[in-house]
Design a protein around this nucleic acid. Structure first.
Length: 795
RNA sequence: GCCGAAGUGGUGGAAUGGCAUACACGUCGGUCUCAAAAACCGAUGAGCGCAAGCUCGUAAGGGUUCAACUCCCUUCUUCGGCACCA
């Protein structure tokens, strides 16, 4: 007979809700702990990824609570976004109706898992009391020129019919629908995240409790590269061609320069030269190639000579100017100095086109023997006054010299671009801007917020912003001159909404500011944040940017919003990510029906450490169920007094499990509990021991533990009890097993008193018959003794 | 190419430089049963051996150390990020 999980889970979910068990209030006398999991998009159904993410968080929240922390554990919904529009078209409903229905379903499913959320703090980003503050934040940014409108080439997804931020383009395709992204010239709203690039990069250093790979991804994305802009001059006209390099130490080896085909100077340079016709042909051909093809690294580097020359400012040498497809207009200055001896791309290009080379940093090969560029360090040669210096040293010396001579300038390049936030979609926060023919771009006054998203908009699926078709929305009076004006009909990207929701949770109902300063000062920063690695760049970078902006507004007084970050691994089935298209989904609800939420929680924590991928295993879930039943049956055999040995094991288990849960090592924490239960089965167990076992299981299987806790006669909830402490005196054994090694190889194990003296032990070891064959007739060189652990005899 | 993470039984996975493979799954055996299921107990890295036991074994190779899955170097493979980034 298995334990009645269904009744138990329903019973306690109701009881906790009624008692308000997880409601959190600021309390300056108690230490706070803000535990946050990335809030879900309300698709209507939770999936295993949610279950894993939220179970990890829930264990930590309940554990911290029993350790005496004032825990805040909120939940909400990231509710704006495109799927709602698609569903509205498909099901002939409204995005608003559809989304709220999904939220209701989702809330029920989350509650079925028994998560300890403070539902009083729930927020949905699609509700105007929330998105009003998106508009407020936007206006604050607008005032500071951090939100601006600009016409430029943008990423355009033809399938979603909207623009995309750079962060939303993955391998040249839309992150959502994988359609190939096109370039389009449009006037769009941007947030000046680049104004924060140094802080976003530098402050990564302080994030000691973030995973290495997330830090590295963010740092790559921000992409700082320091170097020198060097001014080459056109031989004939004296016009300047700036090039960017990170290797100023190789300037004396720059034997030609290369311009991107789109470079604005190209036309002038080739004009009238015999090479003009060929060059034009080449430029035309390259312009037709797509960006993706051009940036694939295995394509041969092609180029043509322009017929013109420039002057290398370091040695006044004349160098030919080429055009090549491997130089990109978007990066640096769109022109490079080529050093074939010390850059592999330049080397290949120079060999192909028989261009001159000169070694300026001594490497292993002579010029004749060189088969590839030498990109390592070494001593400067052929470099005028810098000969003999190590190139690393020469880098800064040369840069300095160039600045003094006025032939170069130290410069830093960044990969990070401003964040494109306007979307030509309906289901998002309206951008609070009005266009007046007289006054131009006018921000909506603060007192007029929120600009409410009209509930009715025509959905045809034909593209174009649906809001533009709602006359009552579009036509307004100009706040400045009261004349007829027109509203902005683009909405904000949903990543805007999620960039500050963690602050809103601190005071979800505040109608004064996005969040209450005092509440945020108490709860923030988030102590532990948990979510998927897919947000390593997008959401986590934007949220950091917003936090820094709020810091500048004086609303908060810390740099970084998330102290610790845990990125949980994905849930796989048969080695592949669970997805609808693969048809390998395991529905959490079906598992809850069969085994209950507690078993599901237990399995998902036991099967793998939180950060790694987790392979779903139907038999594993049965194993988890078996374990809970095994614990359930202990109550039938409780005696008045427990074995003293069992009590020792209990204290060891308390130590171990506390440490493991504290450090998010749930799989080994559970292993420890299983070992403990195995020992209980072979000993005499009493109520006190069993109680401690239940407390340790309770964060993992809360309903289960609460039920047994009550059966033992406790009136208070198990979650009001204090996490057990171990008695370090009981951790010590009287006898210990000592491992005897000879030359590092295990030969013998001895059971001896724990406090045995080294001499006595030595005597014991050398007199042991079983060891004779290994040490007889051999000279003993060394005797290593690690107390309570091992002896190593070197012969 | 650069940056980051990882590589351990049939499987998921354990091991502050000190007994490699904890815990679980699977498999095999036993107890209970008319029988089965459940439950409980036990065995389970490979090779050799009747056995006590021995040898090998943590991607590969080298090094440091009395002692290396763990530290260092080289290489390979897998995954992730960035990338003709100058």
């Amino acid at each position: 007979m298995s334990y009645p999980f269904k009744e138990i889970e329903e019973k306690w979910q109701k009881a906790w809700e009624k008692q308000g068990s997880f409601v959190s209030l600021p309390d300056s006398k108690r230490k706070k702990y803000y535990l946050l999991e990335m809030f879900p998009y309300p698709s209507g159904k939770i999936h295993m990824g949610h279950v894993r993410n939220y179970t990890i968080g829930d264990v930590a929240a309940r554990f911290k609570c029993m350790q005496g922390f004032n825990v805040m554990h909120p939940m909400g919904f990231d509710a704006f976004g495109q799927p709602a529009e698609n569903a509205a078209i498909k099901n002939k409903t409204k995005p608003d109706t559809w989304t709220h229905k999904c939220i209701d379903w989702m809330r029920i499913e989350l509650k079925k898992m028994g998560f300890s959320y403070d539902w009083a703090r729930e927020v949905s980003t699609c509700d105007s009391p929330y998105y009003k503050w998106n508009q407020w934040i936007f206006l604050k940014m607008f005032e500071r020129n951090l939100a601006y409108k600009k016409a430029s080439g943008v990423n355009w997804c033809p399938s979603c019919e909207t623009t995309l931020a750079n962060e939303e383009v993955i391998d040249g395709a839309c992150w959502r629908c994988h359609t190939r992204v096109e370039q389009k010239d449009l006037e769009q709203w941007y947030l000046k995240i680049t104004a924060y690039k140094e802080r976003l990069l530098d402050d990564l250093q302080g994030l000691k409790n973030w995973p290495e790979r997330v830090l590295s991804m963010q740092s790559n994305w921000i992409g700082k590269s320091s170097g020198v802009q060097i001014y080459f001059k056109l031989k004939n006209t004296g016009e300047t061609i700036p090039v960017f390099t990170t290797r100023p130490d190789t300037i004396f080896g720059a034997t030609y320069i290369v311009l991107a085909p789109e470079h604005p100077l190209v036309k002038n340079i080739i004009q009238g030269n015999p090479q003009e016709k060929e060059a034009l042909k080449f430029i035309k051909r390259v312009s037709r190639e797509s960006k993706v093809v051009r940036s694939s690294s295995d394509v041969k580097k092609e180029g043509v000579f322009t017929g013109s020359f420039a002057v290398n400012p370091a040695n006044n040498e004349e160098v030919p100017i080429w055009i090549a497809d491997y130089v990109l207009m978007e990066y640096g200055t769109g022109a490079i100095m080529a050093v074939p001896t010390h850059d592999q791309r330049d080397f290949l290009f120079a060999k192909e086109h028989k261009l001159p080379m000169r070694i300026v940093i001594k490497g292993p090969d002579s010029l004749e023997k060189m088969t590839e560029a030498y990109e390592g360090n070494g001593v400067q040669v052929n470099s005028g006054q810098f000969n003999g210096l190590n190139n690393e040293e020469a880098k800064s010396k040369i840069a300095q010299w160039m600045e003094e001579e006025g032939i170069g300038k130290v410069e830093t390049h960044w990969r990070l671009r401003d964040w494109l936030i306007s979307r030509q979609r309906y289901w998002g926060t309206p951008i609070p801007i009005i266009y007046c023919p007289k006054c131009g771009v006018v921000p909506v006054p603060y007192e007029d917020l929120p600009v409410v998203l009209p509930k009715d908009a025509p959905f045809t699926g034909e593209g174009g912003s649906p809001l533009a078709k709602v006359k009552e929305f579009v036509n307004v009076k100009c706040p400045k001159c009261n004349g007829p004006a027109r509203r902005e009909t683009d909405t904000m990207a949903t990543f805007f909404d999620s960039s500050w929701y963690f602050l809103r949770f601190c005071s979800p109902k505040d109608d004064h500011l996005p969040f209450n300063k005092d509440d945020a000062a108490y709860w923030m920063p988030v102590d532990q944040y948990i979510g998927g690695i897919e947000h390593a760049i997008l959401h986590l970078l934007y949220a950091r940017f917003f936090a820094k902006f709020f810091q500048d507004l004086g609303l908060i007084n810390f740099k970084e919003p998330f102290n610790r970050l845990l990125t949980q691994g994905m849930v796989l089935k048969d080695g592949e990510v669970m997805s609808k298209s693969r048809g390998n989904i395991v529905d959490p609800d079906s598992i809850i029906k069969l085994f209950g939420a507690d078993t599901l929680r237990l399995f998902i924590l036991f099967a793998a450490p939180p950060e790694t991928e987790l392979e779903w295993d139907d038999r594993g879930i049965e194993g988890a169920f078996k374990f809970l039943n095994r614990v359930w049956r202990i109550k039938e055999n409780l005696k008045d007094r427990a074995d003293s040995e069992l009590i020792k094991v209990m204290h060891k288990t308390i130590k171990r499990v506390s440490f493991d849960i504290e450090n998010f090592k749930f799989n080994t924490a559970i292993a420890g509990l299983m070992e403990f239960v195995n020992v209980i089965y072979q000993s005499t167990c009493d109520k006190e021991v069993f109680k401690n076992l239940l407390i340790m299981i309770s964060p993992i299987a809360p309903h289960f533990a609460e039920e047994l806790w009550q059966e033992l006669g406790n009136k208070e909830s198990i979650f009001n009890s204090v996490w057990p402490q171990y008695d370090s005196n009981l951790l010590l054994d009287e006898n210990v097993e000592i491992v005897i090694q000879v030359n590092g190889k295990l030969r013998l194990k001895l059971e001896v008193p724990a406090d045995i003296a080294e001499d006595k032990l030595k005597e014991l070891v050398f007199s042991d018959e079983r060891l004779k064959p290994w040490i007889q007739n051999k000279t003993k060189k060394k005797f290593i003794f690690v107390p309570k652990k091992l002896i190593n005899i070197v012969v």
